[in-house]
Amino acid sequence: MELSSNLPCIKPVRDTREKQIQLWKELIIDYCKTQNVFVIGLEEDFPLFSNPAIERSLSHEAREAFLSALVSDGHAEWMDKGHRKCLILWHRIQDWADLILRFVRENGLEDSVMTVEEIRSGTESRGTELHGMDRTVLMRALKLLENKGKLALFKGTYADDEGVKFSL
């Protein structure tokens, strides 16, 4: 599908380019939030980056520029040194931590114990932004809260069976 003469790319005029990048950042964040997407692979098919119906796709340069702009804003992080995969943070880690605290308070879980998987996919989280969230993002938010003394993380019987003891 690579049509080298017809690839949309970064605009050369600075003001136009800045507006273009801003619009793409908003589009990517909004899409990822509504579709619950946390990882974008630079080389993988991503619906916003290509349109098979008109046989057009963003250039590699444009994809990397838009994702790099999100990284600069703190709304994404490169997952590898080669900048091939990007972790999208439509909420910054601190904001995810705040959402977790609100979830705990609203559900009366202040002194309870839950597994990490229950937070991600349990009945209590259904209908919230926490439901189905990326495990890496969740663990980083939980560790931030642990460092602030809001909870304690502990290992369960199995390697991926971590527990959380809230102490708000």
Rank of each mutant, 00 (worst) to 15 (best):
R135A: 02
A152K: 15
K165G: 00
E162N: 08
R17Q: 15
N107A: 05
E61Q: 12
W96R: 02
P12N: 08
K19F: 08
L67D: 01
V13G: 00
L168S: 01
S50W: 08
Y158D: 10
M79P: 03
R135D: 00
M133I: 11
R126T: 06
S57R: 14
R126M: 09
K148Q: 15
N51Y: 12
S59L: 07
A76I: 01
R135I: 01
I40S: 08
I54L: 04
F103P: 00
E117F: 10
K85T: 14
C86H: 04
T123L: 12
A76L: 09
R120L: 04
N107M: 04
H75P: 03
E110M: 03
L144D: 07
H75I: 01
L7M: 13
R84D: 10
L27K: 14
E124P: 00
T34D: 13
L89N: 04
I28N: 05
K33L: 10
L58Y: 12
S112D: 11
T136I: 10
K19W: 06
H91W: 14
I88D: 00
G163S: 08
L89M: 07
L142V: 05
A141W: 07
L58E: 08
E55I: 11
N6V: 12
V39E: 05
A65K: 11
L23N: 12
A141S: 13
M1D: 02
Q35F: 13
E26H: 11
Q20G: 02
V37C: 05
Y31E: 08
I54G: 00
E61Y: 07
S121L: 12
V113F: 06
I21M: 15
E2G: 01
L70W: 11
H91E: 04
G41N: 10
V71K: 06
P52A: 06
D111N: 15
S50Q: 12
E129P: 03
G122Y: 10
R63L: 04
L42T: 10
D98T: 08
R17V: 09
G127H: 07
P52V: 05
F166K: 01
R17L: 12
G149E: 02
R14C: 01
S121G: 15
N6S: 14
I10Y: 01
S112P: 01
M114P: 00
R56Y: 02
G122C: 07
L27M: 10
E55G: 11
K155R: 13
S167C: 14
I100L: 11
V13D: 13
H131V: 02
V164H: 04
L142C: 00
H60K: 14
E146R: 09
L151S: 03
A76F: 07
D73G: 13
L142M: 05
T128E: 01
V104Q: 06
F38I: 05
K25D: 03
H131D: 03
S4F: 12
L67P: 02
D45S: 15
R17E: 15
L109A: 04
E117V: 04
P8Q: 03
C32E: 03
G132I: 02
N36E: 06
I21N: 04
I88V: 14
L87Q: 13
F49S: 07
C9N: 15
L151Q: 04
S5Q: 11
Q20K: 05
D98H: 05
G82F: 09
T16Y: 08
S5E: 14
S57Q: 14
H60D: 11
H83S: 13
L58K: 07
P52K: 07
L153H: 09
M139E: 10
T123A: 14
R105A: 10
K155T: 13
D45L: 13
